[in-house]
Simulated scan of single mutants.
Amino acid sequence: MSFYESLGFLVFGSRLRRLSEAFLADVNKIYASHELQFDAAWFPVFYILSRQETVSIRDISDELGISHSAVSQLVSSLQQKGLIKTATADDDARKKVVAFTAKGKKLQQQVQPVWEALQQAMGTLVQEGKHSKTILTAISEIEQGLQNESVFNRVQNILHHK
Rank of each mutant, 00 (worst) to 15 (best):
K133R: 14
S72I: 01
S140Q: 12
L83P: 02
V75T: 11
T137A: 13
K103D: 14
G65E: 06
E53W: 00
T137W: 04
A93Y: 03
R17A: 09
N157M: 05
E5D: 12
V111S: 03
H34M: 13
S56W: 05
S150A: 13
L16P: 02
Q120C: 04
L7C: 06
L136F: 13
T86E: 14
M1R: 05
Q144P: 00
A40L: 00
L118K: 04
Q127N: 10
I135K: 02
H160M: 11
F12R: 10
K95D: 07
V45E: 03
S72W: 04
L10W: 05
L19Y: 12
K133W: 01
S140A: 10
D90P: 09
T88C: 07
Q109S: 10
E141N: 14
L74A: 07
K96D: 02
K133S: 14
N28F: 01
R17K: 13
K29P: 00
T134F: 08
E21N: 13
Q80H: 09
E63K: 08
F9K: 14
V11Q: 10
V71G: 01
Q156W: 07
A89V: 04
P113D: 05
E53C: 00
K95N: 03
I158V: 15
E5H: 10
V97Q: 05
S69F: 02
A121F: 02
K103L: 09
E21H: 05
E128C: 10
D39Q: 11
I139K: 08
N157T: 13
K162Q: 10
L24T: 11
I30A: 12
G82Q: 11
V71H: 02
D59E: 12
F152I: 13
F38C: 06
A22K: 10
V114S: 02
H34D: 03
E5T: 09
R15N: 11
D62G: 01
F100Y: 11
E21V: 14
D62R: 11
R154P: 00
L83Y: 15
A117F: 03
R15K: 14
V111F: 02
L64W: 01
Q120E: 12
K106I: 03
L146E: 14
K85C: 03
S14H: 13
V11E: 08
Q144L: 12
Q80M: 12
P44I: 05
N28C: 08
L83F: 14
K96I: 14
L7N: 09
A32H: 09
R17F: 07
D92F: 04
A121P: 00
L118S: 08
S33F: 05
F152R: 13
E53V: 01
T86M: 12
L107I: 05
E141F: 08
H160Y: 06
P44C: 05
Q52C: 00
Q52M: 04
L7R: 15
L19N: 09
F9I: 15
S50C: 01
H68W: 06
F152A: 12
F100A: 03
V111H: 02
V55K: 07
D59G: 00
F23R: 14
Q37E: 14
Y47A: 04
S61W: 02
E21R: 12
H161M: 08
A89E: 06
S61M: 06
L24R: 12
G123Q: 07
I60C: 03
A93C: 01
T88D: 09
Q112M: 10
V155G: 01
M1Y: 05
